[in-house]
Design a protein around this nucleic acid. Structure first.
Lengths: 195, 195
DNA sequence: CTAGGTTTGGACCAGCAAGTCCAGAACGTG
DNA sequence: CACGTTCTGGACTTGCTGGTCCAAACCTAG
């Protein structure tokens, strides 16, 4: 079992590892780095993550996936007006502008995504939740007559999420935010076009 | 200087490393793996890549970037008809379907993208060439009246490339090609709408 | 108080992977 | 053929990193 103190330490380790990975990438992050940053010891790390690094990485992935969605709220959950859509757009861009060249999700998936089924499940779930909310927003806007009803909400939602993902990926590699903005704006423009 | 034999060996190493990374990911690829696969020795590797792994990785990145573009030809270079656009779309999807869960570019950028300015330059150049050709195609189609002239070719091109990139990223993490297809189809539909 | 579990610190180990080094084979050029 | 350059093989070094282990501190319930 886990006492209050114990689970606090556990969380501290996860958050520290997440921060370390965000800053230095996964390849350059060692367990010792995490220990130093969180002022914990080998004993603790392996006490809370018996499977070692792999288990820790999975926990970090889950943690970061939550963060990705949380950072887009409350906008993402209520895309029922043009203002909400634009606020969301700005929130996404802003998040990555501030965060700089480091997307926790991209980092993790690229390195271990296909390797472990666990991470794959985390990412799949994240993408599904994300696009679910986008699609719901599209449907709502179509119902209120703000979005073109000729557009298939599901496919458009998938495309939009893919565009964001790609925009972020390009930003990570080149430092340029332009593609992310273009993807969001074009995607929304496509939806908003009058029939 | 480099003799014919020498540069052949050099290429062999790059291609072997590229294949190894495509198959096992960058984290799981060691120099010894590359040596075994290409039947070369430490001496050779450090003879041709004095800076060691970093230099080799950069060469691999450049090599893979070329491959990405080459695999989309001849379609990408001549997007001047609806047929060409759809052939291109199919080529992209097909390439990733066949390749399975491994995009050389994504793998490399995620791991060393922001780390080294060299890789960053490689990726930036790739993205630019890619979107340049897409944008040229959009302009041509607008000129011939096939694409909606109200759409800004530059931004739409950037968005389309981002969508592809994201679709691939999602496929890598989840194994699902749907997002890639949705991104391409939606992007093209956006361009082709009415007139 | 004490006995059970939980939590913590850190010394230690084993393996591995990058990188060094050098001797010798192959080459090719005058 | 001779000699300088390039190429090749592989043994060896070195540093690091994930992981093990155990003893001590800390709780908390009875």
């Amino acid at each position: 079992m886990l006492t209050t103190k114990g689970s606090a330490t556990r969380s501290r380790i996860i958050e520290g590892a997440a921060a370390e990975i965000r800053e230095h990438g996964i390849g350059a992050t060692t367990l010792d780095d995490v220990l130093a940053r969180t002022r914990t010891s080998k004993g603790q790390l392996f006490h809370y993550f018996p499977q070692g690094k792999e288990e820790l990485l999975l926990a970090v992935a889950a943690h970061e996936a939550d963060r990705v969605l949380a950072d887009q709220q409350p906008h993402l959950g209520d895309l029922t007006s043009r203002d909400a859509w634009h606020a969301w757009r700005d929130a996404v861009v802003d998040r990555y502008r501030r965060q700089g060249p480091r997307c926790p999700l991209a980092v993790l998936t690229a390195e271990i995504g296909r390797a472990t089924p666990g991470t794959q499940a985390v990412v799949t779930s994240l993408v599904q939740q994300w696009e679910r909310q986008v699609i719901d927003g599209i449907v709502a806007m179509q119902a209120s007559g703000d979005f073109d009803v000729e557009v298939d909400p599901t496919r458009a939602g998938m495309a939009l999420v893919a565009g964001i993902q790609g925009g972020v990926a390009i930003m990570l590699a080149t430092g340029d935010l332009g593609h992310l903005e273009a993807a969001l704006d074009t995607g929304i423009a496509h939806l908003a076009r009058r029939a």
